[in-house]
C-alpha cells in the first residue's frame, strides 16, 4: 500500500459519496445541478487565463529550444528543419507534431542491463501509445458530450458519434472512445504502481486526476449501458445551463449528479494542477522557440540604459592636464 495513491483514491471516493448524499439524500439538486457547474466553469476559465498570463510575464531573453537534429548551418550541411527549427514555420510544424502526436514521448527509451551486464537502450512505446489513446479518446468523449449542449446538434458532432459507434454493438450502441479512455487511464495508473522507479516519483497530484477521470468515465458508462437515465430530462438540464435559464427537471437520477459533480471537480481543479500542461506545452520555451540565437539579435528585455563615459568625453575633461603631462591626445584643442 502506498500513501500517495491511497490518499487520492480516498479523496475521489469521498467526493463521490458527497455528491451521492448531497444530491440523492439531502436533495440539494440546485446546488449540484446549477451552482457548482457554473462556479466550476468560471474557476476553470479564469484560472487558466491567469496561469497563462502569469507564464507570459516571464521573460525568455535567450532562445533555449531543445534541439534534436542538425542546426541550420552551411548550405551544404542538411538541416533538420523540424527537430531544429530556425523559422516560424519549422516551429509551428514542430509544435503541431508535439501537441497532436506527442513526438518527444515517442522518443522515450528504456535503459537496461541485459544478460551480459551491458547497457542496452530499448524501445519503450507503451507509454506513448497509452498517452495517445488516453488524450484522443478523452477529446472524442468531450466533443461527443456537446450533443447535450447544442440544439440542433451540429453535423460534425453527429458524424463523430457515428464513427465512435461504428461497431454497432448492443443497444444503446457502444461508444469506443469511452472504453478506450477507461482502459488507457487504467493502464496509466497501473504503470505508475507497477514500475518501482515511476512509483517512487509519483505523488497524489499524479494519482488524483487519474482516479477522478476513471470515476468520471465509469459513472458515465454506468449510466449509459447499465442503469440508464432519462436522457431527455438531462438534456433539458444541460441546455438550461448553457442558455442561462437553469432549471432542474424532475426525474434526473442521482448518479447523473455524481457524474456532473466529478466533472465539475475536474474542471475546477484543472488550473491549479499538472493538467495545465495542456496550456503549458504551448508556453514552453524549449519547444516554442526557433533556434536562431546567432542569426537574429535578441535583446535582453531587462536591459537598462548604461551610463557610459566615452574616451572623447574623457579627453575633453582632462585635455589640458594631459597636454601638460606630455600625454598624446587626439585633438590638440
Amino acid at each position: 500500500m502506498n500513501v500517495n495513491y491511497l490518499f487520492s483514491l480516498l479523496v475521489v471516493v469521498a467526493l463521490f459519496l458527497f455528491a451521492w448524499v448531497g444530491a440523492g439524500v439531502w436533495e440539494m439538486k440546485y446546488l449540484f445541478g446549477v451552482f457548482i457547474p457554473y462556479a466550476a466553469f468560471i474557476t476553470f476559465a479564469i484560472g487558466v487565463i491567469y496561469r497563462i498570463v502569469n507564464w507570459a510575464q516571464s521573460p525568455v531573453p535567450f532562445r533555449i529550444p531543445t534541439t534534436c537534429g542538425q542546426a541550420e548551418s552551411l548550405p551544404w550541411i542538411k538541416q533538420n528543419k523540424i527537430d531544429n527549427p530556425s523559422t516560424l514555420w519549422g516551429v509551428i510544424v514542430r509544435m503541431l507534431l508535439e501537441v497532436l502526436f506527442f513526438r518527444s514521448l515517442f522518443r522515450n527509451i528504456k535503459l537496461e542491463f541485459n544478460a551480459g551486464k551491458r547497457i542496452a537502450y530499448e524501445w519503450e512505446k507503451w507509454l506513448w501509445l497509452a498517452a495517445l489513446a488516453f488524450h484522443w479518446s478523452f477529446l472524442a468523449v468531450l466533443v461527443r458530450h456537446l450533443r447535450f449542449f447544442t440544439e440542433p446538434v451540429p453535423f460534425a458532432i453527429q458524424m463523430l458519434e457515428e464513427m465512435d459507434s461504428i461497431l454497432q454493438v448492443g443497444l444503446p450502441v457502444i461508444f469506443l472512445s469511452g472504453f478506450a479512455l477507461l482502459a488507457a487511464a487504467t493502464y496509466l495508473f497501473v504503470r505508475r504502481v507497477v514500475i518501482p522507479q515511476v512509483r517512487y516519483i509519483s505523488l497524489p497530484a499524479d494519482y488524483f486526476p487519474l482516479f477522478l477521470i476513471m470515476a468520471i468515465a465509469a459513472t458515465g458508462m454506468f449510466m449509459r449501458y447499465l442503469t440508464k437515465v432519462d436522457i431527455i430530462r438531462i438534456k433539458e438540464l444541460t441546455m438550461g445551463l448553457v442558455s442561462l435559464h437553469p432549471a432542474i427537471p424532475d426525474g434526473v437520477g442521482t448518479l447523473f449528479f455524481v457524474h456532473l459533480f466529478l466533472v465539475c471537480v475536474l474542471f475546477a481543479y484543472f488550473p491549479f494542477s499538472k493538467l495545465m500542461h495542456s496550456g503549458g506545452v504551448l508556453m514552453s520555451p524549449t519547444r516554442n522557440l526557433a533556434n536562431n540565437n546567432r542569426a537574429k539579435r535578441h535583446v535582453n528585455p531587462w536591459n537598462y540604459p548604461v551610463k557610459v563615459h566615452t574616451y572623447e568625453e574623457y579627453e575633453n575633461e582632462f585635455r589640458d592636464r594631459m597636454i601638460e603631462a606630455g600625454l598624446p591626445v587626439d585633438k590638440k584643442e
Binding site: A45, V48, I52, F149, T150, P154, S243, L244
Partner: peptide
Amino acid sequence: KVAIGLAIFVALISFPFWFNMGKASPAP
C-alpha cells in the same frame, strides 16, 4: 501571440453558450 491563444481558448470553451445564444430549447 498570447492574446490570440487566449482568444481561441475563450472562444472554444464558450462554444455552447454562443452557439445557442441564450435561446431556450425545451424538451420535446
